[in-house]
Simulated scan of single mutants.
Amino acid sequence: MRLPVPRGPISERLFGELARPPHAFGLPPPLTGPSAEPRVADEDVQVALFACYEMHYQGFDEVDERWEWNRSVLAVRERLEDRFERALAAAVPRPPAAPARDVPRLLVEMVPGGGPWPLADYLHKDACLDRFREFVVHRSLYHLKEADPHTWAIPRLRGPVKAALVEIQADEYGGGRAGRMHSELFRGTMRALGLDDAYGAYADRVPAVTLAVDNAMSMFGLHRRHRGRLLGGSAAARRYYDEHVQADAVHEQIAVWDMCGRFAAGDPGAGGEVLYGAACALTLDRLFAEHVMDRWRSGASSLREPHAVPAGR
Rank of each mutant, 00 (worst) to 15 (best):
G159A: 14
Q46M: 09
Q58I: 11
P118I: 13
W152S: 01
R39S: 10
G59H: 08
A98D: 12
T189R: 12
P118Q: 09
A75P: 00
I254T: 14
A249I: 12
G261P: 08
A100N: 05
A178Y: 11
P21V: 05
R177V: 15
P95H: 05
E85G: 10
G159W: 03
A201N: 10
A51E: 02
D204V: 04
A235H: 01
D242T: 12
H182P: 14
M217Y: 12
G115T: 07
E78Y: 13
A203R: 10
A247Q: 11
Y202P: 05
R105E: 14
M110H: 09
A178V: 11
W69R: 14
P99C: 11
N70G: 13
P306D: 02
I168M: 14
V45I: 06
G159K: 10
F50Q: 07
A91F: 03
P9Y: 11
A36E: 12
N215V: 06
L165D: 01
D294F: 00
G269I: 03
H223A: 15
H226C: 06
V103R: 06
A278T: 07
A153E: 09
V73G: 07
G271M: 08
A120Q: 10
A281Y: 06
D121H: 15
R297T: 08
I10A: 06
L211V: 04
C128E: 11
R86N: 09
T210D: 13
E68Q: 15
E65H: 11
L165H: 02
V274I: 15
L303N: 01
M1V: 11
R205M: 12
R2C: 03
H244I: 11
V45P: 00
P310S: 04
G114P: 09
R187L: 08
A127P: 11
W152M: 04
